[in-house]
Each structure stands twice: as structure tokens, then as C-alpha cells.
Nucleic acid binder design. Sequence first.
DNA 1: ACAAAAGTGTTGTACGTACACCCATGA
DNA 2: TCATGGGTGTACGTACAACACTTTTGT
Lengths: 243, 243
Amino acid sequence: MVTMTQTTLIPGITSAETTTDDVTRVAVSTVIFTLRRDPVSDRAAIVLPLVRRTRDPHEGLWALPGGWLDTSESLDAAASRTLAETTGIAPSYLEQLYAFGAVDRSPGRVVSIVYWALVRPDEIPDHDVENVTWFEAAQLPLLAFDHNEIVEYALWRLRNKVGYSRIAHGLLADEFTLAELREVYESILGRRLDPANFRRQVENSGNLIPTDRFRTGSHRPARLYRYNQDVELADRGPLVVRH
Amino acid sequence: MVTMTQTTLIPGITSAETTTDDVTRVAVSTVIFTLRRDPVSDRAAIVLPLVRRTRDPHEGLWALPGGWLDTSESLDAAASRTLAETTGIAPSYLEQLYAFGAVDRSPGRVVSIVYWALVRPDEIPDHDVENVTWFEAAQLPLLAFDHNEIVEYALWRLRNKVGYSRIAHGLLADEFTLAELREVYESILGRRLDPANFRRQVENSGNLIPTDRFRTGSHRPARLYRYNQDVELADRGPLVVRH
DNA sequence: ACAAAAGTGTTGTACGTACACCCATGA
DNA sequence: TCATGGGTGTACGTACAACACTTTTGT
């Protein structure tokens, strides 16, 4: 069990910043997606980490990991920081999702810049982190603030983007079989895909490089592929990506 | 000439709010697109309104219309307000673009929630507004802050979205010919489209309702169409649209 | 009659989908 | 040898691009 810094994990009322005066504060939260194999159905499911709130607004409820924007860090940096504080690793993909700023979304005025991220399952540390639990995206409990709505929007964005980019690769390790890649698509889209047609589509996309290694099982071995690193995970347009 | 409230038009340093203490402030700006017929080329061009800065950071440069987020208004409301203060009208389409928060993008820490909007040319008031000028998006001068970058991103989003939604309709009046609609697409995409194929595509989309009125010119009259109001201008996913 | 734009028809290509079929391995 | 998934072949339908062609107006 690892203990992380609590003040930054939990947006809301902290000892350092009070809501006594009438100011607008900026928080940064992140919806972090990864895949986990469901033991019962033996199928991949989309899961995300949530943090249990230990303080007043919505105490006891689960919330997205996040924290206050530091005066000297960019929005991207704040997202990376809060994400690292939760999972302890760097995401394979990180993109700004939306700015939420309804007046009544929190006591005191809080504008949340929300990011969404993809993490490869093999990069998640084994050990648990205090107050953090991974939930299936399809079976979330009632969350704090407007976070249910936020996760819904992030899932919509993920499903959309999987259709016209190669972000699905952000959920797989370096080498993978086409069946594994197909399972990622099927988990995100929520429907089965024809293996033959999927193979041709993804082969003709130019994103895959075949290796000469194979994954063996109780059937014909499957060729392992890796990504073409020259192709970006997703087209971000003219926005500068800072690393 | 109409004089608008200056303090809200110009984000930066105002008399009411100083940058003496170390706080992060939230501004809202909007990239407002409309079409204007270029007199020389006789072709439609994308134009947007800019405000000349009359105060310290980047005084004299042109900037996006915007203002500070009010404590008691939502982000959407703030965008609508600043937009109304500039053009005096309600946009046909308004969508959040991105939150810009680089540390050095402004003296003092400012996070800008940027929106983009479409306005029909016939809804723009005739009279000029003080310190506001409309520029062709393709020929912008050096702008204040990171606003050149912001406009580039807004244009990218507009060009993308025109391919898979009917937002182009947000730039036309109630009734229009297919040639007029096609000219909107051509202006945004920057290339000519085949009239015959364009007609079939847009007719099969289910977005258009033919009227029995015609636009006459020095050629065969063209049928006027109107929009199918049942179809949203663009799919915003699960985000609640507040009016 | 002619120009110019509206509107229709036809054809080829690319691509997604459905599905039959063969291949290679472990048990 | 059988089951299982890997991998190939093929046929069909839809969508789009290219472009020839007809229609209807103003001048």
C-alpha cells in the first residue's frame, strides 16, 4: 500500500485554500482508461481509477483523480502531475477533454479542466494506492460532483476517436497479436468485429509493422505486430504537443 | 458607431482586477466565424471580428473578443455574453473549443476558455462597433497573446467538422440554394466541389427540405431549400446543451 | 441563338461487410 | 483426429469521384 499526497488528489476544500472569499478556482482532473480482463466473462473491460473523497463536499463518494492547478504549471503539466500521483506512471496518451464550469457543480466556484488518458495495462504498478480503486466504466456508482457526466463524455470521445485514429494502440503493450488489438476495439465499441475484415483494415492502414515473433496458444500461433511510431496516435491538429 | 463596455471586452489588466497577487484568473474568449463576399475575387471568404487592445499587455494589437469569467455565470453564458457584447447578436452555433493555460501566455496567470461560434451574415448588424474590425481568417496580422494559434486551431476544427456534420448551415440564412450551400463548403475546405456530386450527397443526407420557391438570376432558376430542424447542427455527444 | 448555371445519368473505383474456406497448432 | 483460433479468398452493396449530357432561364 502506497500513500500519495492527499491534498492534491482531492479537489474541493483543503486546508491550504478555503472558499471563504468569492474567487473562481481552477482544478484539473483526468479520466484514465485502461483495460482489465474480467475474470467471469473472460473478456476485456474498460476500467478507470477513482479516488474516495475524505472531505466535506461529497465525502465518501468516489471522484476523478485531480487537484488544483498550480500557479506555475501549465494545464498539461497539471494533468500529468495528478495522473502520476494517482497511478505512478506516465500515460501513453493524454488529451484535454473539456472545461466544465457550471456555477452549481461544486460549492464555491470551481472550473475543472478535464483531461482523458490511456494507459497500457502492463504499465500499471501492482501495488495498491491508498483510497484508489479501479471501476468498470460500464458499471460506475454515483460519483461526486458532475463526474458521472464527465466520464460519459470521455467514453463518447474514446469511442468516436477509435473510429478514425489509432488511439486503441495506447492500450496495448509493444508487441501484440491482431486478435488482441481487435479485442481492444471490441471492448471500446461494445460489439464484435469480423476477424478477417478487421485484419485487412488494420493491415492496409499502414500503422502496423509485422515482427517475426509469434504468440503461441492451443491453436495456430499468431504473428506479433508492433506500431509504426511515425504515425501519431491521433491527429491533434495545429495544437502543439508538449512533452 | 456603437460603444460597448470596454472592461469586459478586453482581457488583460483592468482597473478592477490587478495582477499584484499570485492568483490564477479565468478568461473566456470566442472565435466568431462568418462569411463575407470578397469584392475583388467575388468569392466567399471566412472572416472573424477582432478587438484592438487599448491597454498594457499587447496594446495596439488585435485580439479575440472576450472577457473575464463572472463568478455567477457558467462558461457557456460567459461566452454568449462576450459574443453579444461584440457583435450584438446571438450566434447560430456556439461550441467550446479548448482551454489554453500555458504559464507564459500572458503576464499574470490567465487560463482562457475559448469558444468558437458561427454567425449567419444576415444577422450581423450594419453599424460598426468601436474598436472592432472584421478580418479575413486567411490573412490575419500578428495578434495579441497566443491568439494566432487559437484561431488556427478553431479553423482546423471548423474544417474537420464540416466533413461529418451540417454546421455549414450555421453560416446561411433560412432559405438558400444548393450553389450557396456549396460555396460555404468550398470556402471552408479551400477547394472546389463537383456541383453534381455535391447535390446528391446533400440531398441524400436528409438534412434538407426543398421549398417551392426559386432564386432567379441570369440563368435557370435554382430551387430554395431550408434545413431540417430535427437534425442538430453537430453531434455534441452526451454534453448537455444549455440555451 | 447563346451563355451560364441547374439538374440528371452513367461509369469506374474504393471500401466495408458477409461468409466460405484452408492452415497450423495443442490436446 | 478434433477443436480452436489464425489467416486467405471472394462476392456483393454502398459511397464517392469524374464527367458527359439535358434543362431552363436571361440577354
